[in-house]
């Protein structure tokens, strides 16, 4: 699919198209008229200063908050589906997985149960009242955990993991329904450098293997520069720049609003 479009990043098949998205909270204009696209199989980084509106955009795509204005369409332009107005549940069933800025997992369960839960939901087996859940989708869950490097911790209660590991659990959960689009809000925050690279390398592998697209935010510039195909920069709720990593990196406005000297991250 990426083979047909090589001359320009934008002409590749579009998977998600965001148009004129706006949201305000009381008096605060968190997002005002944001447009961008995510191509199929693309890793797109959404970056910007704190409070720029990145998480708010994620929450609107995911169905958690309803935008004041704008449209969000999933799928290639010929038969795409409008996401605005759908519940997070429906958005997920259309193939959009997500991880949260502050990792959200099922705290009373073991690591593997967290993943099994997602697999059960994907298989629409939630209203099974009889067969023990423990035995179901176990192999598949272990496979996913292996992919995120948690196979050894599978039976531990998730509440006893360190934060970085919890993030990895969340990733495994988000991958359970083989999403077309993965939304990752600061996926590597709180992780050790080696694990950051590992996690993003894994994410990258998924992109190439399954054609999954990834939209992620990140404050760690190492990660952004090493792994993003393209970057969109938000500031005060507006897109101030977008393009390839090199182009954005040299943009003086982005430098001033966000990077600073870039020495420390």
């Amino acid at each position: 699919m990426t083979g047909q479009a090589t001359h320009s990043t934008l002409s590749r098949t579009v998977l998600l198209s965001v148009r004129g998205l706006a949201k305000s909270f009381g008096g605060v204009q968190a997002v005002r008229g944001v447009d961008f696209e995510v191509g199929a199989g693309e890793l797109l980084a959404l970056i910007g200063p704190n409070g720029a509106g990145k998480s708010t955009c994620f929450n609107m795509i995911n169905g958690q908050i309803r935008p004041d204005q704008g449209s969000i369409r999933l799928g290639n332009p010929d038969h795409s589906k409008e996401l605005v107005g759908l519940t997070p549940r429906k958005v997920w069933r259309l193939g959009v997985g997500r991880t949260f800025q502050i990792a959200a997992v099922f705290g009373s369960m073991s690591v593997i149960e967290n993943v099994q839960m997602a697999l059960l939901s994907h298989a629409r087996e939630l209203h099974e009242f009889w067969r023990p859940a423990r035995a179901q989708h176990r192999a598949q869950a272990l496979e996913l955990l292996d992919a995120v490097g948690l196979a050894d911790q599978a039976t531990l209660p998730v509440a006893t993991l360190a934060y970085g590991q919890v993030k990895a659990v969340e990733l495994a959960v988000a991958l359970a329904n083989q999403p077309r689009l993965l939304l990752m809000d600061e996926p590597t925050a709180g992780m050790a450098p080696a694990e950051r690279v590992a996690l993003m390398a894994l994410t990258r592998r998924l992109v190439t293997e399954r054609g999954t697209s990834v939209l992620f935010t990140e404050h760690s510039m190492d990660v952004v520069f090493a792994f993003a195909d393209r970057v969109v920069v938000l500031a005060r709720g507006e897109v101030i720049a977008q393009g390839s990593v090199t182009a954005v990196r040299q943009d003086p406005r982005v430098r001033e609003a966000y990077f600073g000297s870039g020495r420390l991250t």
Partner: peptide, 28 residues
């Protein structure tokens, strides 16, 4: 007891632990 050990019971706990996460993996 049996129902609690079944997928339904697991889903029930999921909704208690983190409604946000549960909704975002398709659990109503």
């Amino acid at each position: 007891r049996r129902v609690l050990d079944a997928p339904f019971g697991l889903a029930l706990r999921a909704g208690r632990d983190s409604p946000q996460r549960a909704e975002s993996i398709g659990i109503n």
